[in-house]
Design a protein around this nucleic acid. Structure first.
Lengths: 175, 175
DNA sequence: GGGGTTGGTTCAATGAACGAACCGATGCTG
DNA sequence: CAGCATCGGTTCGTTCATTGAACCAACCCC
Protein backbone atom coordinates (compact mmCIF):
# COMPACT_ATOMS: atom_id res chain seq x y z
CA UNK A 1 0.00 0.00 0.00
CA UNK A 2 0.95 3.52 0.75
CA UNK A 3 1.23 4.91 -2.71
CA UNK A 4 2.06 8.44 -1.73
CA UNK A 5 0.74 7.71 1.77
CA UNK A 6 -2.63 8.87 0.64
CA UNK A 7 -4.48 7.95 3.77
CA UNK A 8 -3.21 11.17 5.35
CA UNK A 9 -6.32 12.90 4.11
CA UNK A 10 -8.31 10.63 6.38
CA UNK A 11 -9.01 11.86 9.87
CA UNK A 12 -9.26 8.42 11.37
CA UNK A 13 -7.19 6.21 13.60
CA UNK A 14 -8.01 3.20 11.44
CA UNK A 15 -6.39 4.99 8.53
CA UNK A 16 -3.40 5.85 10.75
CA UNK A 17 -3.06 2.19 11.65
CA UNK A 18 -3.36 1.05 8.06
CA UNK A 19 -0.64 3.43 6.94
CA UNK A 20 1.68 1.35 9.07
CA UNK A 21 0.36 -2.21 9.01
CA UNK A 22 -1.79 -2.03 5.90
CA UNK A 23 0.88 -2.68 3.31
CA UNK A 24 1.08 -6.00 1.60
CA UNK A 25 2.81 -8.69 3.73
CA UNK A 26 3.11 -6.49 6.81
CA UNK A 27 0.42 -8.12 8.93
CA UNK A 28 1.74 -11.56 8.03
CA UNK A 29 5.18 -10.50 9.20
CA UNK A 30 3.66 -9.37 12.48
CA UNK A 31 1.71 -12.61 12.79
CA UNK A 32 4.92 -14.56 12.36
CA UNK A 33 6.70 -12.34 14.86
CA UNK A 34 3.96 -13.03 17.41
CA UNK A 35 4.31 -16.75 16.67
CA UNK A 36 7.96 -16.44 17.65
CA UNK A 37 9.71 -16.01 14.29
CA UNK A 38 12.67 -13.68 14.74
CA UNK A 39 15.23 -14.19 12.03
CA UNK A 40 15.37 -12.81 8.53
CA UNK A 41 15.76 -16.21 6.97
CA UNK A 42 12.94 -17.74 8.96
CA UNK A 43 10.53 -15.01 7.83
CA UNK A 44 11.80 -15.55 4.30
CA UNK A 45 11.18 -19.28 4.08
CA UNK A 46 7.95 -19.25 6.06
CA UNK A 47 6.31 -16.42 4.16
CA UNK A 48 7.74 -16.96 0.69
CA UNK A 49 8.14 -13.20 0.49
CA UNK A 50 10.60 -11.51 -1.89
CA UNK A 51 13.82 -10.62 -0.07
CA UNK A 52 13.69 -6.93 -0.93
CA UNK A 53 10.14 -6.62 0.35
CA UNK A 54 10.98 -8.40 3.57
CA UNK A 55 13.95 -6.12 4.19
CA UNK A 56 11.77 -3.10 3.55
CA UNK A 57 9.00 -4.29 5.88
CA UNK A 58 11.41 -5.17 8.68
CA UNK A 59 12.93 -1.70 8.47
CA UNK A 60 9.55 -0.02 8.39
CA UNK A 61 8.29 -2.03 11.35
CA UNK A 62 11.48 -1.34 13.27
CA UNK A 63 11.21 2.38 12.55
CA UNK A 64 7.59 2.31 13.73
CA UNK A 65 8.60 0.70 17.01
CA UNK A 66 6.73 -2.51 16.32
CA UNK A 67 9.80 -4.69 16.03
CA UNK A 68 13.20 -4.22 17.56
CA UNK A 69 16.45 -5.27 15.95
CA UNK A 70 18.70 -6.92 18.46
CA UNK A 71 22.10 -8.54 18.18
CA UNK A 72 21.96 -12.04 19.57
CA UNK A 73 25.49 -13.12 18.73
CA UNK A 74 28.78 -11.58 17.69
CA UNK A 75 30.96 -13.47 15.28
CA UNK A 76 29.34 -13.86 12.99
CA UNK A 77 27.28 -10.80 13.85
CA UNK A 78 23.63 -11.84 13.80
CA UNK A 79 20.56 -9.78 14.57
CA UNK A 80 17.04 -10.84 15.31
CA UNK A 81 13.80 -8.91 15.14
CA UNK A 82 11.78 -9.19 18.32
CA UNK A 83 8.33 -7.92 19.05
CA UNK A 84 7.74 -4.82 21.17
CA UNK A 85 4.70 -3.88 23.22
CA UNK A 86 3.24 -2.28 20.10
CA UNK A 87 3.30 -5.56 18.24
CA UNK A 88 1.81 -7.38 21.21
CA UNK A 89 -0.95 -4.78 21.29
CA UNK A 90 -1.86 -5.90 17.78
CA UNK A 91 -2.68 -9.42 18.94
CA UNK A 92 -6.41 -8.77 19.37
CA UNK A 93 -6.55 -7.39 15.84
CA UNK A 94 -4.64 -10.31 14.36
CA UNK A 95 -6.72 -12.73 16.39
CA UNK A 96 -10.07 -11.30 15.31
CA UNK A 97 -8.96 -11.13 11.70
CA UNK A 98 -7.99 -14.78 11.81
CA UNK A 99 -11.26 -15.72 13.43
CA UNK A 100 -13.19 -13.90 10.74
CA UNK A 101 -11.15 -15.59 8.02
CA UNK A 102 -11.77 -19.00 9.49
CA UNK A 103 -15.48 -18.52 10.01
CA UNK A 104 -16.16 -17.14 6.58
CA UNK A 105 -13.51 -18.38 4.21
CA UNK A 106 -11.69 -21.38 5.62
CA UNK A 107 -12.70 -25.01 5.49
CA UNK A 108 -11.09 -26.60 8.50
CA UNK A 109 -9.71 -25.56 11.85
CA UNK A 110 -6.02 -24.90 11.29
CA UNK A 111 -4.83 -23.95 14.75
CA UNK A 112 -6.18 -23.90 18.27
CA UNK A 113 -5.37 -21.13 20.68
CA UNK A 114 -5.76 -22.07 24.32
CA UNK A 115 -5.17 -20.61 27.74
CA UNK A 116 -1.92 -22.29 28.75
CA UNK A 117 -2.90 -22.35 32.43
CA UNK A 118 -6.10 -24.31 31.99
CA UNK A 119 -6.20 -25.60 28.43
CA UNK A 120 -9.49 -23.90 27.57
CA UNK A 121 -9.85 -22.64 24.04
CA UNK A 122 -9.78 -18.85 23.75
CA UNK A 123 -12.99 -16.90 23.19
CA UNK A 124 -13.40 -14.45 20.33
CA UNK A 125 -11.78 -11.57 22.21
CA UNK A 126 -8.78 -13.54 23.41
CA UNK A 127 -10.35 -14.19 26.78
CA UNK A 128 -10.48 -17.50 28.62
CA UNK A 129 -14.13 -18.45 29.11
CA UNK A 130 -13.24 -20.68 32.05
CA UNK A 131 -11.05 -18.24 33.95
CA UNK A 132 -13.02 -15.17 32.84
CA UNK A 133 -9.85 -13.20 32.19
CA UNK A 134 -8.14 -11.78 29.15
CA UNK A 135 -5.23 -14.09 28.49
CA UNK A 136 -1.89 -12.32 28.09
CA UNK A 137 -0.23 -13.17 24.81
CA UNK A 138 2.62 -15.05 26.42
CA UNK A 139 0.12 -17.38 28.07
CA UNK A 140 -1.55 -18.33 24.82
CA UNK A 141 -0.83 -21.88 23.77
CA UNK A 142 -0.91 -22.53 20.03
CA UNK A 143 -1.68 -26.04 18.84
CA UNK A 144 -2.09 -27.48 15.35
CA UNK A 145 -5.63 -28.30 14.29
CA UNK A 146 -6.89 -31.09 12.03
CA UNK A 147 -6.76 -28.92 8.91
CA UNK A 148 -3.02 -28.25 9.11
CA UNK A 149 -0.62 -30.09 6.80
CA UNK A 150 1.19 -32.54 9.12
CA UNK A 151 4.38 -32.57 7.04
CA UNK A 152 5.15 -29.13 5.60
CA UNK A 153 8.19 -28.45 3.46
CA UNK A 154 9.83 -25.58 5.26
CA UNK A 155 11.49 -25.96 8.66
CA UNK A 156 9.70 -22.99 10.22
CA UNK A 157 6.29 -24.47 9.52
CA UNK A 158 7.56 -27.71 10.99
CA UNK A 159 8.73 -25.97 14.14
CA UNK A 160 5.30 -24.32 14.42
CA UNK A 161 3.59 -27.72 14.40
CA UNK A 162 4.53 -28.47 17.97
CA UNK A 163 2.29 -27.00 20.64
CA UNK A 164 3.96 -23.83 21.81
CA UNK A 165 3.32 -20.55 23.51
CA UNK A 166 3.13 -17.35 21.52
CA UNK A 167 6.21 -15.11 21.52
CA UNK A 168 8.41 -18.10 22.32
CA UNK A 169 11.37 -18.01 19.90
CA UNK A 170 11.13 -20.47 17.05
CA UNK A 171 13.88 -23.05 17.04
CA UNK A 172 14.48 -24.44 13.61
CA UNK A 173 15.58 -28.04 13.51
CA UNK A 174 18.87 -28.16 11.64
CA UNK A 175 18.99 -31.36 9.62
CA UNK B 1 -2.24 -6.38 -2.66
CA UNK B 2 -2.91 -9.65 -4.24
CA UNK B 3 -0.22 -9.66 -6.85
CA UNK B 4 -0.81 -13.17 -8.10
CA UNK B 5 -2.72 -13.92 -4.88
CA UNK B 6 0.47 -15.15 -3.35
CA UNK B 7 -0.88 -15.75 0.09
CA UNK B 8 -2.34 -19.04 -1.14
CA UNK B 9 0.86 -20.72 -0.09
CA UNK B 10 0.03 -19.77 3.48
CA UNK B 11 -1.96 -22.27 5.50
CA UNK B 12 -3.53 -19.68 7.72
CA UNK B 13 -6.91 -18.10 8.18
CA UNK B 14 -5.29 -14.71 8.68
CA UNK B 15 -3.81 -15.02 5.22
CA UNK B 16 -7.22 -16.10 3.88
CA UNK B 17 -8.76 -13.00 5.41
CA UNK B 18 -6.05 -10.71 4.05
CA UNK B 19 -6.53 -12.04 0.54
CA UNK B 20 -9.96 -10.48 0.72
CA UNK B 21 -9.70 -7.44 2.95
CA UNK B 22 -5.94 -6.87 2.80
CA UNK B 23 -5.81 -4.86 -0.40
CA UNK B 24 -5.22 -1.16 -0.31
CA UNK B 25 -8.39 0.83 0.50
CA UNK B 26 -10.52 -2.23 1.19
CA UNK B 27 -10.69 -1.94 4.96
CA UNK B 28 -11.44 1.76 4.70
CA UNK B 29 -14.33 0.98 2.37
CA UNK B 30 -15.64 -1.50 4.92
CA UNK B 31 -15.20 1.04 7.70
CA UNK B 32 -17.24 3.55 5.75
CA UNK B 33 -19.87 0.94 4.99
CA UNK B 34 -20.17 0.19 8.70
CA UNK B 35 -20.47 3.92 9.35
CA UNK B 36 -23.45 3.94 7.02
CA UNK B 37 -21.96 5.03 3.71
CA UNK B 38 -23.77 3.24 0.91
CA UNK B 39 -23.44 5.13 -2.33
CA UNK B 40 -20.65 5.13 -4.86
CA UNK B 41 -20.27 8.86 -4.81
CA UNK B 42 -20.26 9.07 -1.04
CA UNK B 43 -17.44 6.54 -0.83
CA UNK B 44 -15.66 8.51 -3.52
CA UNK B 45 -15.73 11.90 -1.86
CA UNK B 46 -15.18 10.61 1.65
CA UNK B 47 -12.23 8.39 0.83
CA UNK B 48 -10.59 10.36 -1.96
CA UNK B 49 -10.06 7.06 -3.73
CA UNK B 50 -9.54 6.79 -7.50
CA UNK B 51 -12.81 5.90 -9.22
CA UNK B 52 -11.47 2.79 -10.92
CA UNK B 53 -10.10 1.43 -7.65
CA UNK B 54 -13.38 2.06 -5.87
CA UNK B 55 -15.35 0.27 -8.57
CA UNK B 56 -12.97 -2.67 -8.35
CA UNK B 57 -13.18 -2.89 -4.56
CA UNK B 58 -16.96 -2.65 -4.52
CA UNK B 59 -17.17 -5.49 -7.01
CA UNK B 60 -14.69 -7.60 -5.10
CA UNK B 61 -16.47 -7.03 -1.81
CA UNK B 62 -19.82 -7.78 -3.39
CA UNK B 63 -18.46 -10.99 -4.91
CA UNK B 64 -17.07 -11.98 -1.51
CA UNK B 65 -20.46 -11.50 0.11
CA UNK B 66 -19.30 -8.62 2.28
CA UNK B 67 -21.40 -5.97 0.59
CA UNK B 68 -24.64 -6.36 -1.31
CA UNK B 69 -25.65 -4.26 -4.27
CA UNK B 70 -29.27 -3.24 -4.00
CA UNK B 71 -31.48 -1.03 -6.10
CA UNK B 72 -33.00 1.68 -4.00
CA UNK B 73 -34.81 3.59 -6.71
CA UNK B 74 -35.87 3.16 -10.30
CA UNK B 75 -35.76 6.16 -12.56
CA UNK B 76 -33.06 7.03 -12.49
CA UNK B 77 -31.88 3.52 -11.57
CA UNK B 78 -29.67 3.83 -8.53
CA UNK B 79 -27.98 1.10 -6.52
CA UNK B 80 -26.48 1.19 -3.09
CA UNK B 81 -23.98 -1.09 -1.43
CA UNK B 82 -25.16 -2.30 1.95
CA UNK B 83 -23.30 -4.34 4.52
CA UNK B 84 -24.01 -8.03 5.02
CA UNK B 85 -23.46 -10.17 8.11
CA UNK B 86 -19.91 -10.78 6.91
CA UNK B 87 -19.12 -7.08 7.01
CA UNK B 88 -20.71 -6.73 10.42
CA UNK B 89 -18.58 -9.63 11.62
CA UNK B 90 -15.54 -7.52 10.78
CA UNK B 91 -16.52 -4.84 13.27
CA UNK B 92 -14.36 -6.23 16.09
CA UNK B 93 -11.36 -6.27 13.76
CA UNK B 94 -11.97 -2.73 12.55
CA UNK B 95 -12.58 -1.59 16.09
CA UNK B 96 -9.40 -3.10 17.51
CA UNK B 97 -7.35 -1.78 14.63
CA UNK B 98 -8.67 1.70 15.25
CA UNK B 99 -7.99 1.41 18.94
CA UNK B 100 -4.42 0.36 18.25
CA UNK B 101 -3.95 3.22 15.82
CA UNK B 102 -5.25 5.73 18.30
CA UNK B 103 -3.21 4.47 21.22
CA UNK B 104 0.03 4.31 19.34
CA UNK B 105 -0.08 6.76 16.47
CA UNK B 106 -2.80 9.32 16.96
CA UNK B 107 -2.69 12.53 18.92
CA UNK B 108 -6.26 13.19 19.94
CA UNK B 109 -9.46 11.29 20.37
CA UNK B 110 -11.26 11.52 17.05
CA UNK B 111 -14.47 9.62 17.74
CA UNK B 112 -16.25 8.10 20.68
CA UNK B 113 -18.12 4.83 20.43
CA UNK B 114 -20.78 4.35 23.05
CA UNK B 115 -23.47 1.91 23.98
CA UNK B 116 -26.59 3.65 22.68
CA UNK B 117 -28.76 2.23 25.48
CA UNK B 118 -26.73 3.64 28.36
CA UNK B 119 -24.19 6.06 26.91
CA UNK B 120 -21.18 4.22 28.30
CA UNK B 121 -18.07 4.25 26.16
CA UNK B 122 -17.25 0.89 24.61
CA UNK B 123 -14.46 -1.27 26.03
CA UNK B 124 -11.62 -2.58 23.91
CA UNK B 125 -13.56 -5.60 22.71
CA UNK B 126 -16.70 -3.70 21.80
CA UNK B 127 -18.38 -4.56 25.07
CA UNK B 128 -20.26 -2.21 27.35
CA UNK B 129 -18.47 -2.12 30.72
CA UNK B 130 -21.64 -0.97 32.47
CA UNK B 131 -24.06 -3.49 30.99
CA UNK B 132 -21.44 -6.26 30.78
CA UNK B 133 -22.61 -7.29 27.33
CA UNK B 134 -21.16 -7.24 23.86
CA UNK B 135 -22.90 -4.36 22.13
CA UNK B 136 -24.42 -5.27 18.75
CA UNK B 137 -23.14 -3.04 16.00
CA UNK B 138 -26.48 -1.38 15.39
CA UNK B 139 -26.53 -0.27 19.02
CA UNK B 140 -23.19 1.47 18.83
CA UNK B 141 -23.46 5.24 18.96
CA UNK B 142 -20.69 7.13 17.19
CA UNK B 143 -19.90 10.65 18.36
CA UNK B 144 -17.26 13.14 17.27
CA UNK B 145 -14.33 13.65 19.63
CA UNK B 146 -12.33 16.79 20.31
CA UNK B 147 -9.68 15.92 17.73
CA UNK B 148 -12.07 15.90 14.80
CA UNK B 149 -12.17 18.81 12.37
CA UNK B 150 -15.48 20.56 13.14
CA UNK B 151 -15.94 21.88 9.59
CA UNK B 152 -14.74 19.37 7.00
CA UNK B 153 -14.92 20.05 3.30
CA UNK B 154 -16.82 17.05 2.02
CA UNK B 155 -20.51 16.49 2.80
CA UNK B 156 -20.07 12.90 3.95
CA UNK B 157 -17.63 13.91 6.67
CA UNK B 158 -20.09 16.60 7.66
CA UNK B 159 -22.91 14.08 7.90
CA UNK B 160 -20.68 11.85 10.05
CA UNK B 161 -20.17 14.69 12.55
CA UNK B 162 -23.59 14.27 14.05
CA UNK B 163 -23.95 11.60 16.71
CA UNK B 164 -25.34 8.56 14.96
CA UNK B 165 -25.67 4.83 15.21
CA UNK B 166 -23.49 2.55 13.13
CA UNK B 167 -25.07 1.03 10.01
CA UNK B 168 -27.57 3.87 9.85
CA UNK B 169 -27.60 5.18 6.25
CA UNK B 170 -25.71 8.42 5.74
CA UNK B 171 -27.87 11.26 4.57
CA UNK B 172 -25.90 13.88 2.72
CA UNK B 173 -27.13 17.42 3.08
CA UNK B 174 -27.77 18.76 -0.39
CA UNK B 175 -26.89 22.42 -0.47
C1' DG C 1 41.72 -21.64 -0.25
C1' DG C 2 37.03 -23.46 -1.13
C1' DG C 3 32.39 -23.95 0.10
C1' DG C 4 28.45 -22.78 3.05
C1' DT C 5 25.33 -19.66 5.71
C1' DT C 6 23.20 -15.31 6.83
C1' DG C 7 21.45 -10.98 5.65
C1' DG C 8 21.12 -8.25 2.79
C1' DT C 9 21.27 -4.86 -2.16
C1' DT C 10 20.52 -4.19 -7.19
C1' DC C 11 17.99 -4.46 -11.30
C1' DA C 12 14.80 -5.43 -15.13
C1' DA C 13 10.09 -6.90 -15.80
C1' DT C 14 5.43 -7.01 -14.32
C1' DG C 15 1.40 -5.52 -12.05
C1' DA C 16 -1.36 -2.23 -9.42
C1' DA C 17 -2.73 2.46 -8.29
C1' DC C 18 -3.42 7.13 -9.75
C1' DG C 19 -5.84 10.89 -11.90
C1' DA C 20 -7.76 12.96 -15.68
C1' DA C 21 -10.79 12.39 -19.43
C1' DC C 22 -14.67 10.41 -21.35
C1' DC C 23 -19.47 8.33 -21.52
C1' DG C 24 -24.37 6.64 -21.19
C1' DA C 25 -28.60 6.99 -18.80
C1' DT C 26 -31.49 9.88 -16.70
C1' DG C 27 -33.58 14.15 -14.61
C1' DC C 28 -34.20 19.08 -14.35
C1' DT C 29 -34.58 23.88 -16.36
C1' DG C 30 -35.78 27.18 -19.41
C1' DC D 1 -37.24 20.29 -26.95
C1' DA D 2 -32.34 21.88 -26.10
C1' DG D 3 -28.88 22.32 -22.80
C1' DC D 4 -26.84 21.35 -18.61
C1' DA D 5 -26.15 18.59 -14.34
C1' DT D 6 -25.73 14.16 -11.73
C1' DC D 7 -24.65 9.48 -10.89
C1' DG D 8 -22.01 5.54 -11.67
C1' DG D 9 -19.13 3.99 -13.90
C1' DT D 10 -14.98 2.77 -17.98
C1' DT D 11 -10.64 3.91 -20.44
C1' DC D 12 -5.98 5.10 -20.64
C1' DG D 13 -1.25 6.92 -20.08
C1' DT D 14 1.84 7.70 -16.14
C1' DT D 15 3.77 6.61 -11.82
C1' DC D 16 4.77 3.59 -8.18
C1' DA D 17 5.26 -1.09 -5.81
C1' DT D 18 6.16 -5.95 -6.07
C1' DT D 19 8.54 -9.77 -7.93
C1' DG D 20 12.27 -12.96 -8.65
C1' DA D 21 16.71 -13.65 -10.02
C1' DA D 22 21.34 -12.33 -9.59
C1' DC D 23 24.89 -10.50 -7.02
C1' DC D 24 27.57 -9.43 -2.81
C1' DA D 25 29.98 -8.85 1.79
C1' DA D 26 31.00 -10.75 6.16
C1' DC D 27 31.94 -14.50 8.54
C1' DC D 28 32.46 -19.58 9.70
C1' DC D 29 34.44 -24.25 9.11
C1' DC D 30 37.35 -27.61 6.95
Amino acid sequence: MALGKDYVTQECSIARALEIVGERWTLLVIRDALYGVRRYKDFLVHLGIPRAVLADRLHTLTAAGILEKRRYQESPPRDEYVVTARAIALWPTVRSLGLWGREHFSAAQLRYFRHADCGTELGPYGECPACATVVPVEDVLMEPGPGLDPDPADPVSRALLKPRRLLQPVLVDQV
